[in-house]
């Protein structure tokens, strides 16, 4: 008699990879999905194919969440981000498997990526309560005024995650935005979106408030122009856009004069220690004056 059970004795339960919007995991409102393959071309899963409307919803969620995130004390934001690192570490194996499949790395290579990702996240967590000191100043103006400058988050930043470095690069884009107090709409690597979805699950169980990070999977080409032209998006990180798309998006960003970070000379080396640039591009410097008198 043939064994009626599936190969291996039981059928595994596969995960549905969904979007992460306002702290929830909806499917695309369009009902669409797209196949995601591993590095050798074998089908890994179907990911949600986010629509323009999903992108719009993500911006709404981010805008709603941003003031609360920015208003949290820098110390608190640092702690929340450190908690994310703890949870990343906790899911070490799961991330390593996703990275290995998506990026075609061997076990040790994938392990190294995850370890570096956790460390990178810890590095940025520590920045949350230091960036204002490093980027701020008191300014010696020539007169009876006290004058100081402080950095403030720009608000809602849309980020195109790197296409190749699906976890380390993703963290390298999202974490600095969060450390600086921004809310994020991130478009995951188009062909390697699964680590981003898993990161969503980490964020959902962390103390990052709903809506502060929103993750879209789908076609960068389709989603990015919507975000670049969206008048309620304040900043645009083009890490995952090629030169041609980047030029188009820069043009589209002129509508409300977004702060734009465009990669210089190809995809960044995400293994290199970052500078403060990714944080500082997405802060505004506010300068205040007050008379000094009795």
């Amino acid at each position: 008699m043939p064994d009626p059970r599936p190969p291996g004795g039981r059928l595994s339960v596969q995960k549905t990879y969904k979007l992460f919007l306002a702290g929830a995991f909806p499917r695309s409102e369009s009902g669409r999905s797209y196949p995601v393959s591993d590095a050798r071309g074998a089908l890994l899963a179907h990911a949600a194919l986010a629509s323009r409307k999903d992108a719009r919803d993500a911006v709404v969620a981010a805008r709603r969440a941003q003031p609360g995130w920015a208003a949290a004390s820098a110390y608190n934001r640092g702690q929340v981000l450190y908690r994310v690192a703890e949870l990343l570490e906790d899911r070490h194996a799961q991330f390593a498997e996703a990275v290995a499949a998506g990026e075609g790395l061997d076990g040790a290579g994938a392990e190294a990526v995850v370890a570096e990702t956790v460390d990178r996240w810890v590095w940025y967590a520590g920045w949350a309560d230091k960036i204002a000191q490093v980027a701020g100043s008191s300014n010696p103006v020539a007169g009876p005024w006290f004058n100081f400058s402080v950095p403030e988050p720009v608000g809602v930043v849309a980020a195109l995650a790197p296409q190749r470095s699906s976890l380390l690069g993703l963290a390298g884009v999202v974490a600095p935005l969060l450390a600086a107090g921004n809310a994020v709409v991130v478009v995951a690597s188009e062909e390697r979106p699964l680590p981003a979805v898993t990161l969503s699950e980490v964020l959902a169980t962390s103390d990052v408030p709903p809506g502060v990070v929103n993750v879209l999977t789908g076609r960068t080409r389709e989603l990015a122009p919507v975000l670049a032209a969206h008048r309620d998006v304040d900043g645009l990180d083009l890490a995952g856009a090629g030169p041609e798309l980047a030029a188009e998006l820069e043009r589209a960003s002129a509508g409300n004069l977004k702060r734009v970070l465009t990669p210089r000379g190809g995809e960044e080396d995400w293994w290199a220690m970052p500078s403060t640039r990714r944080m500082l591009t997405f802060v505004e410097t506010k300068t205040a004056w007050h008379p000094v008198g009795v």
């Binding site: 010696p140 103006v141 005024w145 409300n256 004069l257 505004e284 506010k286 205040a288």
Partner: peptide, 28 residues
């Protein structure tokens, strides 16, 4: 706003960063 004058207005100084938020531009 990029510059907030409290109990004063329209003061400028080379040591004081100047520039806008939103559609008032970027850079200081």
């Amino acid at each position: 706003a990029g510059v907030v004058w409290a109990n004063t207005f329209n003061r400028f100084d080379p040591a004081s960063p100047f520039g806008g938020y939103k559609e008032s531009g970027f850079g200081r």
